[in-house]
Design a binder for these strands. Sequence first.
DNA 1: AAATTGAAATTTTTAATTGAAATTTCATTC
DNA 2: GAATGAAATTTCAATTAAAAATTTCAATTT
Lengths: 184, 184
Amino acid sequence: MSHHVGEDIRSLRKSRGMTLLELAGDVGRSVGWLSQVERGQTTPSVRDLGQISDRLGVNISFFFRSASRAPEERGLVLRAADRTPIGSQESGLVEELLSPTLSGSFEMIKSTFAPRSSSGGRRKARPKEDGGVLISGRLTLIIGDREIRLEPGDSFQFRETDYAWRNDGDEPAIAIWIVSPPIY
Amino acid sequence: MSHHVGEDIRSLRKSRGMTLLELAGDVGRSVGWLSQVERGQTTPSVRDLGQISDRLGVNISFFFRSASRAPEERGLVLRAADRTPIGSQESGLVEELLSPTLSGSFEMIKSTFAPRSSSGGRRKARPKEDGGVLISGRLTLIIGDREIRLEPGDSFQFRETDYAWRNDGDEPAIAIWIVSPPIY
DNA sequence: AAATTGAAATTTTTAATTGAAATTTCATTC
DNA sequence: GAATGAAATTTCAATTAAAAATTTCAATTT
């Protein structure tokens, strides 16, 4: 009874705007069953969970990121060693989830921007608010019509949905990035 | 016309749950006047602003933290050099606002916990959500009945309103702390 | 004349309804 | 026991109404 993959499934499903009906249909199970899985009343088979994770676009290992930790701290802390890459198919950008749970009102992400790289086009996105602090390296943000060059220690926050980034430097740029509401 | 102290005043007032009527009364001015000040249609005198900042519990210099920066980046970026201590009368804890504006849906704070110090009693607080990443040092969080020892790189997130902290180490603990909704 | 007030006009917020959609429950089937 | 499917329940989004808060601006004060 220790693993509540259900809570993660629910958050991922919601952040993607899917209903029980849709996800259950996609993985070939009933709405009632998925409801029970999400609430921890039924344990899905590994095969079921594999289908679910495929459909939600995460690796199945994501559900077990804190598996080796004491149950009391699961969902409350995420240890540095347990962070997993998530999302972001963009080359040049590696995102690791810092939030121990997906069900909060905001999400914390460690973003690493490769040297000499930049985001592709602009982002299409739901209305959300972004913010962050540059920890190391250099990073240029293009927000609206403004171009902002960040140095370590600088912080930022904005609601523009279309923005882009660029790392002109020779070293990776590392930022703590905050998104609200959650995107994963 | 460059300084919009009004926006900060409005955010601080709201985060403290005050109405125009209350704050205006406390500083001996009319509601209409304060409304104009907050919307940048009237500039308060330095004396008025002093009274307002006293009542809101910030140093008057807070309103001018980004004064030397280009207007385009004000409210969007906060440069490392412009950070000011804010809030937290607690000894052992220094909080610096990272958010460039107070009007977002969350607030980013750099918290420095002195060696061998701890929070006094529990916190009384409005419902909010806290999260963060420990950047350096060691920090113990007491959340509900759980005691969590954090190492650098560990991240956390919770909604419990009563929590406490303790730094048993010999060096300061530095964390990036996120609060939603804003408290300042 | 510029700053400030105060009261009327307007906007925002809160609470209560309601119908639709989504979710939960649980007796039945596989 | 695992899973389904339909009935029961809950949640969500859209309305509406009343109260509270804010804005506006003509009048007053400095």
